[in-house]
Design a protein around this nucleic acid. Structure first.
Length: 645
DNA sequence: GGGAGAGACGTTTTT
DNA sequence: CGTCTCTCCC
């Protein structure tokens, strides 16, 4: 298929696909077909014979990266299967792994698992004011990097911060690891300080989706990679919902000014949503006062009005029941379960709906985070697996040595580490020496006991390795039938099947990344339940948003924050709701008008409210009184009048 | 090094 | 309400 098939010359979509400008910026509202136009641009490049390896399509999430790849393959563009959409993060890890880069940075790009950060916190807590304080300081460190604060003129670091940073990086260097927030900044530093680096001219074409979700460091990396490249960025500041990740949506606004002679293109026709939903979205987002441009989504006549209902229930239980009944009715009427998406900002609302659907035998899938590594026992086995693959995995060793202690045995570990530092020994070999009596370090008895236990376990695992590879090791670590390890076992076996059994290192690398990756089925057969953040980038003929109450949507900002910050948080919450309602897809020709249902309730048990971090308007005999979300009011005449359920 | 009890705090989310 | 952290004490 030719890249321009079905693209009308002179339209913005055609311009996006065809512009030869060095810099192209596209501002595109929800459902306006930005991904479509981007794909056509990639198709044009490939058809013109550009090497796939010289094209870098960057997305924010893995889901989006895989999505892009899949759709390009579907277009049957020549050599498209060689083109791999990347997340900036995976690109950074791969680049930092290159030998010459490793040599230049002196840092190992081995990212810490969430659970592995605990001993790091405990080790630093001793000299830096306790675990909570350390956590704050790590956050500040990551945030300074993410926002490239150090590059700002006049940036001064306090002695305390400098102290902390020195100890933190010393820990990370010793343990040959990085915290996740360092990955992109490390690449940024490498590129910025090595203007002659091959990486800066590796690409001739860079395409960035959801640019408003990138933080300053990420945006900086794009600039540093594009010495030689035509760059096309796409995004929408009205859909910026990642401030907690230090996203820098101003970057997309300023981009035309900071990049010479850039094309400034935009897409306004909302091809996805029914007319009424577009009107509601416009009315809602107009309440954000800090918008650089008051852009308006244009409704499309052929999409039809759609069906929208707003329903208030008496209690949370009634709301959940109401949603369940609505879904059951829709399915009875012939709606495919895969066409229904339920958005709820808290597990306390989403999970009962999920359980209710399971009970009614309606196929359903929940996307609330539940990590394979949640259970402590699983973490231990995963750490064992890491040590089985590599005895010198110092992070995993540190973790198993401190496990089961409320201070992670920081005192004895400090002695061990000191010895290693002064004698340039590795922790593993040092512990072996203490164990055999060749060496004595005082106050390390428990540590060595732990070590012996772990070493024995690994020894046993090693004995299991047979002609048929390491499958028995998986069986031993993640036994069949143990519900606590069911998910990780399945992932491990899957990974094993796709890998060379003898290559432990690549097996572990693949498994680690499989754990981090949310599964995305190609064919959707079930009702999907997820948070509003997760819904970004997808659309569904029936979208239900439950729990539209004050305190949840919008979330109440902490009262002690300055007014300007509280207002910024509120505006982001409004954008989140804007993203939510614009998931609705109208396909009248297929008998799918596009259905949006917003629900809320007047009361929920106080305990539920507290557990979900909702501060109630008032309390009445153990029941929290709830108010309708202000966002419902803000949609004004564009929205239908709420009804009682 | 580790257990018991008091007190603080809590979401959403990416890699 | 439940979980986590911190302090105190053995």
């Amino acid at each position: 298929m030719a890249w321009s098939d079905g693209l009308e010359e002179g339209t913005q979509a055609y311009e996006i696909a065809s512009s030869p400008n060095q810099h192209v910026r596209v501002i595109a509202g929800p459902g306006t077909g930005k991904s479509f136009a981007m794909k056509r641009r990639v198709a044009r490049l490939l058809e013109n014979g550009i090497e796939p390896s010289a094209i870098l399509p960057v997305t924010f999430t893995r889901v989006a990266a895989e999505d892009l790849h899949r759709e390009l393959v579907c277009m049957q563009v020549p050599r498209c299967e060689e083109l791999v959409g990347k997340t900036l993060h995976s690109l950074a890890l791969r680049t930092l792994m290159r030998h010459h880069v490793l040599a230049a940075t002196g840092r190992t790009p081995r990212a810490l698992n969430n659970f592995e950060i605990k001993p790091l916190e405990a080790d630093l807590a001793v000299n830096h004011g306790g675990v909570i304080e350390v956590r704050k300081k790590i956050k500040a460190y990551e945030s300074a990097w993410a926002r490239l604060q150090r590059d700002e003129p006049g940036y001064v670091q306090s002695a305390e911060e400098a102290d902390f940073e020195r100890d933190l990086t010393a820990w990370l260097r010793f343990h040959r690891a990085m915290i996740i927030g360092e990955v992109i900044p490390q690449l940024h530093t490498y590129l910025a300080t090595n203007p002659a680096a091959q990486e800066r001219t590796e690409y001739s074409h860079i395409l960035v989706d959801e640019y408003q979700d990138l933080n300053k460091a990420e945006q900086g990396v794009i600039d540093l990679l594009s010495d030689n490249a035509e760059v096309c960025i796409v995004g929408d500041d009205d859909q910026s919902i990642y401030s907690f990740k230090h996203a820098h949506p101003e970057g997309i606004i300023d981009w035309v000014a900071t990049h010479n002679n850039a094309d400034d293109l935009s897409l306004e026709d909302c091809r996805r949503c029914p007319i009424q939903v577009v009107d509601m979205a416009n009315a809602l987002i107009a309440h954000n006062v800090n918008r650089p441009v008051n852009r308006v989504l244009a409704p499309m006549e052929q999409n039809g009005a759609g069906t929208v209902s707003i329903v208030q229930y008496h209690t949370l239980n009634a709301e959940i029941l109401g949603v369940l009944n609505t879904i059951a009715e829709l399915i009875d009427q012939g709606v495919h379960p895969g066409d229904i998406v339920i958005l709820a900002q808290r597990g306390v609302i989403g999970t009962p709906i999920y359980e209710g659907l399971v009970e009614r035998d309606i196929p359903v899938r929940s996307y609330y985070a539940q990590s394979e590594l949640d259970a402590e026992g699983t973490q231990f086995r995963f750490a064992l697996l890491k040590l089985f693959v590599n005895r010198e995995d110092r992070v995993a060793l540190r973790w198993v040595l401190g496990r089961d202690s409320n201070n992670w045995r920081t005192n004895s570990y400090r002695r061990l580490r000191q010895y290693c530092d002064t004698n340039e020994a590795t922790p593993w070999e040092t512990l072996v020496q203490i164990e055999t009596g060749d060496l004595n370090i005082p106050y390390t008895n428990t540590l060595v006991q732990r070590f012996t236990a772990v070493r024995n376990e690994i020894h046993q695992l090693e004995n299991l390795v047979a002609d048929n590879g390491i499958t028995p090791v998986i069986d031993a670590l993640f036994p069949d039938g143990d519900p606590a390890v069911r998910d990780i076992r399945a992932l491990a076996l899957e990974t094993l099947a796709a890998n060379d059994e003898d290559d432990r290192v690549s097996f572990l690398r693949e498994l680690t990344s499989a754990i981090a990756r949310p599964e995305i089925p190609t064919e959707i057969e079930e009702v999907r339940i997820m948070s509003l953040h997760k819904s970004k980038g997808l659309s569904a003929p029936v979208t239900i948003i439950a729990g539209c109450i004050e305190g949840l949507l919008p979330q109440e900002p902490k009262a002690n924050l300055p007014l300007a910050i509280r207002e910024a948080i509120l505006e982001e919450q409004r954008r989140l709701f804007y993203v939510g309602i614009t998931r609705v897809k109208a396909s009248p020709a297929e008998g799918k008008p596009g259905t949006l249902i917003l629900t809320y309730s007047q009361q929920m048990p106080l305990a539920t409210a507290m557990g979900a971090g909702i501060s109630p308007a008032s309390i009445n005999y153990g029941e929290a009184n709830l108010l309708a979300s202000r966002f419902i009011r803000e949609m004004g005449q564009a929205a239908p009048a709420p009804i009682a359920g």
